[in-house]
Design a protein around this nucleic acid. Sequence first.
DNA 1: CGACATCTTGACTGCGTTCAAACATGGTGG
DNA 2: CCACCATGTTTGAACGCAGTCAAGATGTCG
Lengths: 253, 253
Amino acid sequence: MARNEVTRIGLDAKFNHAGLRQGLTPATLRKLDAISRLRVFPRDAVVVPQGAALEYVGNVVRGVLRMDRLLSDGRSQIVGLLVPSDMFGRVFSERSDYSIEAATEVTLCCFERHAFETLVRTCPDLEHAVLLAVLDELDAAREWITLRAGATVAARLATYLLMLCRRWPHQTSELTHDAQRIIVNVPIARNDLAHYLGTTVESISRTVQAFSRDGMISILTPLRFEILDLPGLIVMSDNDEFDAASLLAGLRG
Amino acid sequence: MARNEVTRIGLDAKFNHAGLRQGLTPATLRKLDAISRLRVFPRDAVVVPQGAALEYVGNVVRGVLRMDRLLSDGRSQIVGLLVPSDMFGRVFSERSDYSIEAATEVTLCCFERHAFETLVRTCPDLEHAVLLAVLDELDAAREWITLRAGATVAARLATYLLMLCRRWPHQTSELTHDAQRIIVNVPIARNDLAHYLGTTVESISRTVQAFSRDGMISILTPLRFEILDLPGLIVMSDNDEFDAASLLAGLRG
DNA sequence: CGACATCTTGACTGCGTTCAAACATGGTGG
DNA sequence: CCACCATGTTTGAACGCAGTCAAGATGTCG
């Protein structure tokens, strides 16, 4: 009964998965379901330790995962965040060169890696879906690169806020009642944010306060901002790939 | 005749390609060959402009490509280098968010993108090969992330030199006559190196000289260093994933 | 040999890190 | 209900790395 429940949710999770959404046959879905398992991790739990053998791959159902690289001097570097529908782990690779940890409490849909790989080799439709998922991952990595390209902390923070609005419009942002301005919900705390943007908690704090002082944003709570000057933020980001009109449209649509 | 020559070289190039090396059937290779074309670009030529429609994908046969992102403030950012056997372009994506330029004179093996994608969809063996190629690309992106994770210019430069030795042992590095020390040949000039490491020509120069002063390296020519203190470089890189013994073994093997 | 690109060196300035401490916020037990 | 502590956030002061500007050195090619 409980087992059936898990299985059924597992199917839904896979079906909704961004990478595996592309026309899988019912037969493939059934086989996939047979090796899937839902798992819940508490906040800060280590899902995959850095350098460890990769036993599972899967996708995020609920919550946020962070990919975290430990440097030998003790500092750590967040190299990416995974939100619901993203895949974690890496097919056809023995070990992970970063650890995967729960940034919030997370629910994961896991597949035993070798069984999954076997399935990939035998189901062309699944292989195609995985290819698309990996291409998404590649885009995410390039997005991270964009993020870190900013010379100043202000540029990187501005880029980060804009990326939240563009990439996950309805999960992380909403419109004010008059539909004129955007409210952003930052999914991670200052500490993780600092690691993600390659800086310190203090610098993040100062920059956020500076944005507020300059009338770019209004701080509703530490993790919730209202964007007052969207064009200003875009200029600040040093990245002309952002467009105020299409960001707003993405939220209205 | 000249055409045959090109075709034959094209086949070799594909056969040697890291991503497409995996057991392609002769039939697939033939079809691939039919849409391939060798092209040569002079140094600093723009192969794919930023934001332009992607007409070709392919792989590098000879020389070095740089992937270059232009920021709205005029600065530019090198987000990756492609050496022989790497794929460039991106399947199933309409446009490129960075420009691809020739860092040296390059020879490319090009495929018209739509024809290539059609082929991918009809040949499962090719699709599998492409999947592996994209996974390699993903690794390269993560490697770039490692590179840029270093807090100081010294750490990033040390990481870069070590990465050259590990990733392309025989293309970029060799052993001294006594087989005790490594000689590194940096494939790109100071200017590109500075952009790649997210810094300036001046800082690169100062750091290289500092390494030399501290006895870490000996500067043979501006683009050719002898590594005198390999363990020291590894400590400097702040990255404990490098191992002196295995780096040397990689070159001896 | 001169012209040009590349590389090196020097002096100054500023952003951001570091260290340190105060300030919120939320949950717990007396 | 409030004192207390844990956690997270903000603010302040001082130092250091690296970017900028400017000039000099080295190398390369017609």
